[in-house]
Amino acid sequence: MRVIEPHIHMVSRTTDDYARMARMGVVACAEPAFWAGYDRLSPEAFRDYFHHISAFEPTRAAQHLIDHYCWICINPKEAEDVAFSREVIAFIPEFLDRPNVLGIGEIGLNKNTRNEMTIFEEQVELALKHGQLILIHTPHLDDKLKGVRMMVDYLKGHGGVDPERVLIDHMEEHTMGIVREAGFWTGMTIYPVSKNSPARAVDSLERFGFDRVMVNSAGDWGPSGPEAVHHTIFEMRRRGHRPEDIETVFYNNPCTFMGQCPKFKPQPTRSREEARGDGARGGTRTRTA
């Protein structure tokens, strides 16, 4: 089965990870712009970073037959300095026409501050102005629930945001319903300690269904790894889920969401309507064992 890794920070990963991903069936990956583990010393450092993920990483991935895509933004952890952030935002449009850039992301909140919210809103406007997809990071741990509510309330009240073109990531059991009920796409991240384990992610798939959801490793410089997605695939298999439903979550759904950007090349094996039409709603009814 072909697999798409919808969220991974390959700048922090080794070439061996590309090789492992390729051998595990990954045919495409998407790399959101994020915090590098330290605050950049100048806005210009982001220009180099955006060039790295939109020019260098695709060539590295291509050596392993993986299509590499990316998202461009100033991440929420470095968005507290509004003036600094605006300097970065000013040159983001220079990168939006690059062949592997899918949209604006991962924007969002970290500590749910007023300044972070200001920059989040300005980057939503930037995406809308340029007709871009949006990828949203949600806060970690105890800040997550409040941050999700703040951003969902803002987006719902905006009036000009199409939820079908927005992916809200790092969902867990207490935030999944809020985001899905508002009509947005959802992402679940598999991490060793925080976020989701493979078993909990499959619990949520069974509870909330297979539509408008993706699973990712968000592999970066911390404890994480690209095999996390495949551990989740195995968890679905050992619970008896159908191969076509596993393909919906790990290949077709990323194709459907990211395919709204015409630059995204992989094509789904079947449409959302077909997936919905054959009973693939998640839950124990879809298990074969």
């Binding site: 741990l141 059991e173 384990s197 078993a199 909990r200 619990d203 509870r207 124990t284």
Partner: peptide, 22 residues
């Protein structure tokens, strides 16, 4: 803290998983 938090969440999720299943 994070490790213990994770163990507690996993334990709760596991009990829910079993109780919610057929």
């Amino acid at each position: 803290y994070l490790q213990i938090r994770s163990f507690l969440v996993e334990a709760a999720a596991g009990l829910d998983r079993i109780q919610n299943a057929p």
